[in-house]
Computed example of a mutant assay.
Amino acid sequence: MVLDTPRPIAAILHWRVTWFLARLALVSAYLLGGVVKLTDWQGAVAEQAHFGLQPAALFAALTIAAELVGPALILLDRLAWLGAGMLGVFTLLAAFVANDFWTMQGQERFMATNAFFEHLGLVGGFVLVAIVSLQRAHRDA
Rank of each mutant, 00 (worst) to 15 (best):
A80Q: 01
L3E: 05
W41H: 09
L76V: 05
G34L: 03
A61Q: 09
L75V: 01
N99H: 15
L87N: 00
D40T: 13
A61P: 00
A22R: 00
Q135A: 15
V127D: 01
N99C: 02
S133M: 03
V89K: 03
L32D: 05
A61W: 08
G43K: 08
A72V: 08
E67N: 14
D4R: 08
R7W: 09
A84C: 12
V69P: 00
T103K: 10
G52R: 07
L93G: 02
E47D: 14
F59S: 04
I131R: 14
F110L: 12
F116K: 08
V35R: 09
L73T: 00
L122W: 02
Q107K: 04
D140F: 10
E67K: 13
P55M: 13
H138T: 13
D4Q: 14
V45D: 09
H50T: 13
Q42I: 04
L53G: 01
A44P: 04
R136A: 07
A72I: 05
G124P: 02
V27C: 13
G34E: 05
I12G: 06
Q107A: 04
D77M: 10
P71G: 02
L58H: 12
I74R: 03
S28Q: 11
L32M: 14
L68C: 10
L21S: 07
L58I: 15
R136I: 04
G121W: 04
A57F: 11
L120R: 06
V127P: 06
I9Q: 12
F51L: 08
R136Q: 15
L122Q: 06
L92G: 09
L93N: 06
V35I: 15
A46M: 11
D40K: 01
G124L: 06
L53D: 04
L128I: 12
M1E: 09
F96V: 14
Q42P: 00
G125E: 05
I9N: 12
V97F: 12
I9D: 07
V132F: 11
R78E: 07
S28F: 08
H14D: 14
V35Q: 10
T91Q: 05
M1W: 05
L53W: 00
V36Y: 07
A95W: 00
I9L: 15
G124V: 07
G106K: 12
A11V: 14
V132K: 02
A94I: 06
L21D: 09
V2D: 15
F110A: 15
V129C: 02
E47V: 07
N114K: 08
H138Q: 14
G83A: 10
A80K: 06
W102A: 09
A130M: 01
L31S: 00
G125M: 03
R109G: 05
A115Q: 02
H119D: 13
F110D: 11
M104R: 08
A22D: 04
T5I: 13
Q135K: 09
A60W: 00
A112C: 09
E67P: 00
F51A: 14
V123F: 12
G124W: 04
L79P: 00
V69M: 06
D140Y: 03
I131P: 01
A115T: 13
Q54P: 01
L75T: 01
A60I: 01
P6D: 05
A10Y: 12
A29C: 11
A60D: 03
A56Q: 11
T103W: 10
N99W: 04
G85H: 05
D40I: 05
G88H: 11
A29I: 13
Q105V: 08
F20H: 06
D100K: 04
W41S: 12
Q105M: 07
